[in-house]
Design a protein around this nucleic acid. Sequence first.
DNA 1: TTAGTTTTATTCCGGGCGGTACAGAAGTGG
DNA 2: CCACTTCTGTACCGCCCGGAATAAAACTAA
Lengths: 205, 205
Amino acid sequence: MAETPTGPGRPASGRPREFDLDHALDQALLVFWKQGYEGSSLSDLTTAMGIGKPSMYAAFGNKQELFRRALDRYAEGPGSYVARALEQPTARQVAEVLLRGAVQTTTAPQGCGGCLTVQGALAESPEAQPARDILVPWRNEAMRRLAERLRRALDDGDLPPDADPDRLARYLATLVFGIAVQAASGLDAGELDDVVDTALQSWPA
Amino acid sequence: MAETPTGPGRPASGRPREFDLDHALDQALLVFWKQGYEGSSLSDLTTAMGIGKPSMYAAFGNKQELFRRALDRYAEGPGSYVARALEQPTARQVAEVLLRGAVQTTTAPQGCGGCLTVQGALAESPEAQPARDILVPWRNEAMRRLAERLRRALDDGDLPPDADPDRLARYLATLVFGIAVQAASGLDAGELDDVVDTALQSWPA
DNA sequence: TTAGTTTTATTCCGGGCGGTACAGAAGTGG
DNA sequence: CCACTTCTGTACCGCCCGGAATAAAACTAA
């Protein structure tokens, strides 16, 4: 059955499985993380898992179920900072652990960059490399121009002297990209305007 | 040649092109916006453009070049709020126009949701629907749990009575998703920690 | 040993992908 | 009329996709 649990409570009949479910899931997770869902072919996945396609199909049902299981595994592993944040004693610490955890996880060198819940839908496959080759420099260039404009604002004196144009530009750009993801998740303009209101409270003087 | 410009300075020899380059680009832009780069097949694109594959190939070279041209067109059209923001007189207004413009563009009903510079790399194709069916509820559920935790904080009194847990949760989640995109663009942990520092300044009392 | 069950590797499927060869159609200057 | 150039539709290329059928292999229970 596809629903065979990991535990040892197996019926102990028939040919035993020759691979470890959780280990295989971890390998699949890495592929999904690095290449996104649609960029991860069954061949990519099963090769990384060290098994054949029928084995994967028998164990997990199909590609979508495999992804779901990998996402669960992600939540227990690299994504556990979310749960950890929710357990903090104060709201301020919740926020801090959440954001720091996001940074740490998405930039971890052994990780694949990005968080699976976004990256899984981001097209990071070799197939989409042409798009990345265009979009990543484009986004960075836009951020650079924004920083330049803010540096001028600093010279003009409409930013406090201790303000950091680069930091502010990164902050704004991060919000813009986050807003794009949220909009794709279905948030409406009113909800996102609230986000903007909150964000602008941290704008210097 | 693929580099034939739009202007009327054409050599006026050979069979004239039967479609409008810019209009075709606009149609391609919509497809890329809605489906992402790798989710947009040449058939999807040329069908929307109303031309055959060889015509597209002759006019733009290949899929990547078509995407590049469509992105340029995006920057002049729906994405022009970025340039408009940079022209504002004060830094505060730059920030406000940028963020409001992002919300407006990404949530516009006639638009396709999301910003092309992120959405282009987001997998929104039918092929990736299984992933979206899993990820979108997952992200929203995570945000809901966060809001719930902050509501408890409000009850506990470690948030000011006028704080809005839902708003704060959306704000934090937006930052997390933005951080994921930035990390995928190559920003390192130090740069993103700066973002977190800036963000936490807007945290209530 | 035998029957029953489950996993394994091999092989194949129809279909869609990005990209192209080709021939004909539509325009130009002579 | 002519070559000549360029665009257009059709039909096609090799390749890989997600998935499934098949039969051999490996185990348990009787």
